[in-house]
Computed example of a mutant assay.
Amino acid sequence: MSVQVREGAPSGEAELAGLIADSQELTGLVDEVRSRLAGRWAGEPSLLARMCAHAHTPPGKLFRAILLIESALAVGGDPRWALPAAVGAESGHVASLVHDDIIDGDDTRRGRPAVHTAFGVGDAIVAGDALIFDLFAGLAECRAAGASADRVVAALAVVSRCGIDLCRGQSLETELHGSGRFDHETYLNMVRLKTAALFRAACECGALLAGGDPRQVRALGRYAEHLGVAFQIRDDLLPYTSSAAEVGKPDTSDVRNGRLTLPVIIAHRASGAADRAVIEAALSGIGDPATARADLSDVLHRTGAVTATAGWARRYLRFALAALHALPVTASRARLAGYAEAAVGRDR
């Protein structure tokens, strides 16, 4: 069955918000997730509570929480059984951002000081750890919300496996950087582990907790994995297609950290000796990061790497859309397709 990718769709956050607004039920559920997150650490006058609240502020797009709720709806189950897990999914995602910012040395997140910038590295690590445990607390709360004990245990297994995959991906990224090899296969494997893991966890958990059958859970897992890869490929382009103000974090992070992202790998493979030297110098960590980013951006555009990378993102978008055909035809399935298109078309 052929899958059509819509051209000229609204970009990113605006389309995501529009899709949510189409469903009164979904709008109410997402609002409840926001409310629960806002109150999660409120009223506790501790350093840990202040750090966790800071990490959640301003709230992000709640994309993984939305995917979890939508997956519950897509299998015809009661999404309220999975609502605490949706809250936990956002905590798990934010935990990964706290730790990423420390690893990458990025001082801002969502347009404000990162947690380690505001509170120090040691305490920020503790805050990130607490948010990971909050993810598991959310899963446990699903039993009281109506999910059966066996399905809560199955969801716990999914999240544990995906969390370890995320760590494998982070470690593989370090190996790829250290190797100096511009290898797109290793890159794609790293992305499947590091970025797609939390997408898989969200979608499979939503389906499991709401009573989905094994075929539906597998379909949503495939959708999530391809979506996660497409999402990260698009993310790799943002430093060269959007401003730091639009993205909410430094546009020099990838250059400062010598990160071998897909556009860089494609450009290096397509370049002659002179441009390869520019790429390698830009990623060396020597000199002004802003100048290095500008030099690298010029090569990426001239070699067609930006366009080629966008093509890879659309390829994985098609895979994600194809996986949805195993699900019943519902408004939720249509919105899941729309979320994938929005993720590939986003500018932040």
Score class of each variant (00 low, 15 high):
residue 175 E to G: 09
residue 309 T to I: 03
residue 186 T to I: 07
residue 92 G to P: 11
residue 160 S to M: 11
residue 194 K to P: 00
residue 123 D to Y: 11
residue 142 C to N: 07
residue 275 D to I: 03
residue 78 D to P: 03
residue 67 L to E: 04
residue 23 S to K: 08
residue 283 L to I: 05
residue 335 R to Y: 14
residue 344 V to K: 03
residue 276 R to T: 01
residue 14 A to N: 04
residue 24 Q to F: 13
residue 15 E to R: 15
residue 55 A to N: 09
residue 243 S to L: 10
residue 20 I to W: 09
residue 202 A to D: 03
residue 117 T to W: 14
residue 185 E to M: 10
residue 15 E to I: 00
residue 332 S to P: 07
residue 105 G to L: 11
residue 137 A to Y: 12
residue 277 A to W: 12
residue 18 G to N: 13
residue 21 A to S: 15
residue 170 Q to R: 09
residue 85 A to Q: 08
residue 338 G to H: 10
residue 225 E to T: 02
residue 174 T to L: 15
residue 58 P to M: 06
residue 247 V to W: 06
residue 171 S to G: 12
residue 337 A to W: 05
residue 293 R to Y: 08
residue 56 H to F: 13
residue 129 D to N: 14
residue 315 R to T: 13
residue 59 P to L: 15
residue 87 V to C: 11
residue 113 P to Q: 01
residue 303 T to Q: 10
residue 61 K to P: 03
residue 91 S to T: 04
residue 245 A to P: 10
residue 324 L to H: 08
residue 307 T to D: 15
residue 248 G to S: 11
residue 246 E to Y: 07
residue 281 A to V: 01
residue 312 W to G: 00
residue 255 V to S: 08
residue 80 R to V: 01
residue 181 R to C: 08
residue 59 P to V: 07
residue 14 A to H: 04
residue 342 A to M: 04
residue 245 A to C: 03
residue 309 T to E: 07
residue 341 E to T: 08
residue 269 R to P: 02
residue 216 Q to D: 06
residue 291 T to L: 14
residue 334 A to E: 15
residue 176 L to S: 03
residue 274 A to I: 02
residue 177 H to V: 07
residue 86 A to E: 02
residue 174 T to M: 15
residue 51 M to E: 13
residue 105 G to E: 10
residue 235 D to Y: 09
residue 186 T to M: 09
residue 27 T to R: 15
residue 326 A to K: 05
residue 280 E to C: 09
residue 23 S to N: 08
residue 297 S to W: 01
residue 222 R to Y: 11
residue 273 A to H: 12
residue 114 A to F: 13
residue 71 S to D: 04
residue 42 A to M: 05
residue 229 V to L: 12
residue 27 T to Y: 07
residue 200 R to Y: 05
residue 337 A to K: 06
residue 284 S to R: 14
residue 148 S to M: 06
residue 320 A to H: 06
residue 234 R to Q: 13
residue 26 L to T: 03
residue 229 V to W: 02
residue 256 R to T: 00
residue 304 G to N: 07
residue 18 G to S: 14
residue 1 M to K: 14
residue 91 S to E: 14
residue 72 A to V: 01
residue 237 L to P: 10
residue 328 P to A: 15
residue 261 T to I: 02
residue 34 R to K: 14
residue 341 E to K: 04
residue 73 L to I: 10
residue 65 A to F: 07
residue 198 L to M: 12
residue 62 L to V: 00
residue 21 A to R: 14
residue 25 E to F: 09
residue 12 G to P: 12
residue 83 L to D: 04
residue 72 A to H: 06
residue 129 D to E: 13
residue 256 R to G: 03
residue 191 V to W: 07
residue 291 T to M: 08
residue 139 L to A: 04
residue 98 V to E: 04
residue 94 V to P: 04
residue 59 P to F: 10
residue 122 G to L: 10
residue 4 Q to C: 02
residue 320 A to K: 05
residue 244 A to G: 13
residue 11 S to D: 11
residue 120 G to L: 03
residue 233 I to A: 05
residue 133 F to S: 08
residue 153 V to L: 13
residue 55 A to F: 12
